[in-house]
C-alpha cells in the first residue's frame, strides 16, 4: 500500500481530480455500454412476447372461424 490514509488515497498527491475523473469516465463508459446491451435485450424480450401473443390471437381466431 502506497498511501498512509484514505484522504491521501483520494488526494493522489494533489492529482486526485485528474486521476479519479480518468478512472471514473473509463468505467462509466464501460458501464453504459453494458447497460445499453442489457436494456436492449429486455426490449427484445418484450417484443418477442408481444409477437407471440399476436400469433396466438391469430391462431385462435383462425380456429374459431
Amino acid at each position: 500500500m502506497q498511501f498512509d490514509s484514505w484522504s491521501a488515497f483520494i488526494a493522489m498527491g494533489g492529482y486526485g481530480v485528474y486521476v479519479w475523473s480518468a478512472f471514473f469516465v473509463t468505467f462509466l463508459c464501460f458501464g453504459l455500454l453494458a447497460l445499453e446491451a442489457v436494456w436492449r435485450r429486455t426490449k427484445l424480450r418484450d417484443e418477442a412476447r408481444k409477437q407471440q401473443a399476436r400469433q396466438q390471437r391469430i391462431e385462435k381466431a383462425k380456429r374459431e372461424s
Partner: peptide, 21 residues
C-alpha cells in the same frame, strides 16, 4: 495500479492514469 504500484519519481501520482489510458 491505484493503491499498490509505486508513484513515479517524476510525475508523482498522476501517472496512475496510465493504467486505463
Amino acid at each position: 495500479g491505484l493503491a499498490y504500484a509505486p508513484p513515479d519519481y517524476q510525475q508523482g501520482e498522476s501517472y496512475r492514469i496510465i493504467f486505463v489510458h
